[in-house]
Amino acid sequence: MSSNKGLFKSSITKKIVMGLTGLFLITFLIVHAGVNALIFLNDGGQAFLKGASFMGTNPLIRIFEIVLVLGLLLHIIDGIIITRHNKMARPIAYYGKGASANSTWYSRSMGILGLLILLFLIIHSAHFWIPNRYAQFTTGHEIDLFGRMKFIFSHAWIVGIYVGACIALSWHLMHGFKSAFQSLGLNHSKYNPIIKTVGFAFSIVCPLVFAMMPISMYFGLIQ
């Protein structure tokens, strides 16, 4: 009779995991955007390199990096499982299209938005994270991340990919931020407006800060 054992298989648990890992990844976005925004000081990358090298060499943060990768993997795998399961729940699609009357397109497209962000993350880590860790591992020294940024963001098409990814991230957050609270059962008429407002602001500001990095470097605004 009991179905308690179903905890790890239940659809609600999967959503809770999605919400928790999502919020965790949001904290990463804040740190990442914060450190990288140091380039906007326009001091030849000095402050940024200090910050980045602290993040890249501090042992505690390096341990946390593993947690971050695990959290990201969990978010991705859980997302794939949920999306597949949800596709199976409606084997025959509707002929009439009217969903825009009851929900936003991006809330219905979290899987595809997530996939776009994942593709970007592969490109992005091949640009910076992997070469840097590889250099640390082989030579013991970090690469010149600031110089590399300037070089990579001198290509218009790469800047285009980065900006596109920021737009996808913005839509993903626009639904994901508040959705995470709902999945965790945190829905309260007193706090809903603030969750909505903060979520909306964050979904615009955070991707915008990120997008401004390649854009301003491409136009030579950062020296």
């Binding site: 009779m1 009991s2 179905s3 308690n4 179903g6 298989k9 239940s10 659809s11 609600i12 999967k14 959503k15 949920i82 399961h85 949800n86 199976m88 729940a89 409606r90 969903a99 009357a101 009851n102 929900s103 936003t104 809330s107 219905r108 979290m110 639904h175 508040k178 959705s179 709902q182 999945s183």
Partner: peptide, 27 residues
């Protein structure tokens, strides 16, 4: 027990999982 059993049955029946689009509430 009621919450556990009803959710379990919901999953067994093959419904998808909620992604908080809010379409249900609207309709």
């Amino acid at each position: 027990q009621r919450a556990l059993d009803m959710v379990h049955q919901m999953d067994v029946e093959g419904f998808g999982s909620c992604s908080n689009t809010g379409a249900c509430e609207a309709e």
